[in-house]
Amino acid sequence: MKRILAISYYTFRQNVRNRVYYVLFIFTLIMVFVSMLLSVLGGEQPMRILLDFGLVSIEFFALLIAIFTSVTTITEEVESKTIYLILIKPIPRWYYILGRYTGILLSVWTSMLLMYAFHFLMLTLQGWHPGPDYLYAVISSSLKIAIISAVAIFFSVFSTSTASSLVFSVFIWIAGHFSTEINFLTGKMEFLPAKYSVKILYYVIPNLQYFNWRDFLSTGVSFFRWMPVAVVYAVAYIGVFMCLSSVLFEKKEV
């Protein structure tokens, strides 16, 4: 356990110093830009727009950091050979996978937290009254990011090219949001083999709509209706991908 934590902390340090700061900087710029744009446009409902722009861009930037670091982490380490120095230590290989994953997640979550704090501050300064909805949006976005990072780690072990793992991960992200529509489609299909294969696809791809709370803010649905089960779902889903990655990585030659 301590050794997994050591890898996790090492990954965290590596990422935080490298990429995260740039992204945070760009996020801040965008938020300031959007709020300036809004004051020029003089739009009605500026708070809503600022809220949504913030929540979406935080998630988007977190997605960028998560996917890029997850996908490049193994290939980059193989190329620079730093991975050898970890793999020749007397540790099981799945320590590496789990350590990397938790380290990446930790750095992405930290950057998200910073962005949320900035965003929250900006909204309150403009006289917005926060409700629990904001917290729910933060929680669900973080889970979404946790899932997609696990998927991206899996692809990076599975595939030899960074580009293809990147494309696969982005595909899963999009398909994950589209899953409601996929399910809807299966209801309309009459050709059974197609119906069942699409249905299987629906269950294999993570349903990210469960964690899309920031899109349901004013819809009046209850967060607690499905979220406790969705958390179990997320953890198990991540577990599946960690196990798959470990099994594959066990046999990987570097």
């Binding site: 409601t180 209706r225 969705a230 779902y233 953890v235 889903y237 196990c243």
Partner: peptide, 20 residues
């Protein structure tokens, strides 16, 4: 174990979650 949990929770979520 994880795969079964995913499957079970998916089925439960199908009932609990409706796209607003």
């Amino acid at each position: 174990v994880f795969a079964l949990t995913v499957a079970t929770s998916s089925f439960i979520l199908d009932g609990l979650f409706t796209y607003p």
